[in-house]
Design a protein around this nucleic acid. Structure first.
Lengths: 232, 232
DNA sequence: ATTATCTATAGATCTATAGATAATGC
DNA sequence: ATTATCTATAGATCTATAGATAATGC
């Protein structure tokens, strides 16, 4: 069948690295992910990506239009499975929302931590504001919306006014995305453990008041408002 | 005195922008901060920085050895005041640790949110791993250590084993640093409100078990109250 | 004939230095 | 004399395209 030694097209010049088996597109994506994570997106050259994937710089253009296309595809491929899970969980009306939210958090952290490379840091690149990443941004926004809905179905969440909910959701989502960024700086703990600890932390943020509900309560800020009071 | 029109040296070519009054070094730092935040570090050229500061590209080298030097100085100037506050708080033995941790969180978020530009995103640049940023990394590590000590003096924290404490501290620190990154994506709420909401969320993470660890909740700004009641 | 690669390179940067210039200060 | 700026530019990239080449497929 595949007979890996017999491929169409001019053979590669660099015979160093083992074939890896993956199709060239995937090789390129992997190389890009690794380099973006290591050196940063802007600092990574097309030459570096191609070379790490075992081909010459120009050959990359046979598969991708440039660095941006690589980044866009990487970002979308990270966030899409997460959105799918989120939708599935959102539909499971019979299970408690807290539980589902916990699962979503855990699995998102795991997804980003366990992936071959830490793509989390790419989410926040200034480049991602560009037109080319509109799809990614939309999918990510939808994911965040799923978080919001799950949070709203939570005992604590349902007691919040709309803007309080929004704020709390931003914090929760921020924890998930933020924490992956600094994963390395924590203690060297298995991804599973880390993911569950993060999910639990997320639920605490979600959780109504531990002591009593309100959020930016503090009293300060706007005085008055904030209520949400729930009950004691 | 200063008679701003009469400065030594060849006059600037670009007479467009208003003088701003700041010394050139500061102008450069401000321009760099703005551009790093807008476009990203690697994507910002020395020319862009200099030009925004109102001078020609080459002139920048009169003040800084290059882009990295600008970044190093910006990072250090952000984290240093924070470390100072942390040390001060750590020394205030008479006040409850929960309360002090809350203040530290709040003020860190505020520092990063309110600053002229969102420097938070710079913390995680891959470039920051380089030799040139050793000082910054050390100061930041010391700051994190302060968080850890405060957390350990907390009712909930004191009950944790060492590695559990470490993990929880990583989450807490991650929340603070992570959340500033995504500040914009939340609801448009005043920085004060956002900072307090984040501080409260941080205390929830710090807080012991979900069902019981109460927090320095509602207490506020000062007023000794706040107490985080200990037991159940 | 088709395909996947290669080599070569034009054009567009960007950095960092050299050396000139236009102010004030003495 | 000193200083802060300027202009000019060498050298080092980096991207993206043009066109050649070495396989397989028919």
């Amino acid at each position: 069948m595949s007979d890996s030694g017999r491929r169409v097209g001019r053979p590669r010049a660099d015979r160093q690295r083992p074939p890896s088996g993956l199709p060239p597109r995937e090789e390129l994506l992997g190389a890009a992910a690794a380099l973006f994570a290591e050196r940063g997106y802007a600092a990574t050259t097309t030459r570096a990506v191609a070379e790490r994937a075992g081909m010459r710089q120009a050959t990359m253009y046979h598969y991708f239009g440039g660095k941006e296309e690589l980044l866009a595809e990487l970002l979308e491929s990270t966030v899409t499975p997460s959105l799918e899970l989120a939708r599935r969980l959102l539909a499971e009306d019979d299970r408690p929302a807290e539980r589902r939210l916990w699962e979503l958090c855990r699995s998102d952290v795991l997804l980003l931590c366990e992936g071959p490379y830490n793509l989390g840091a790419l989410y926040l690149l200034p480049e991602v504001r560009g037109e080319r990443f509109a799809v990614f941004r939309r999918v990510r926004a939808e994911l965040k919306e799923c978080y919001r809905r799950l949070l709203a179905r939570t005992a604590a969440g349902s007691a919040l006014p709309a803007d309080g909910l929004e704020l709390r959701n931003a914090l929760l989502f921020g924890l998930i995305e933020g924490v992956i960024l600094i994963r390395d700086s924590g203690p060297p703990v298995p991804a599973e453990v880390f993911a569950e600890a993060t999910a639990e932390a997320a639920l605490r943020i979600a959780g109504g008041g531990i002591a009593h509900g309100r959020i930016a309560d503090g009293g300060i800020a706007d005085g008055g408002g904030a209520v949400a009071g729930a009950d004691a």
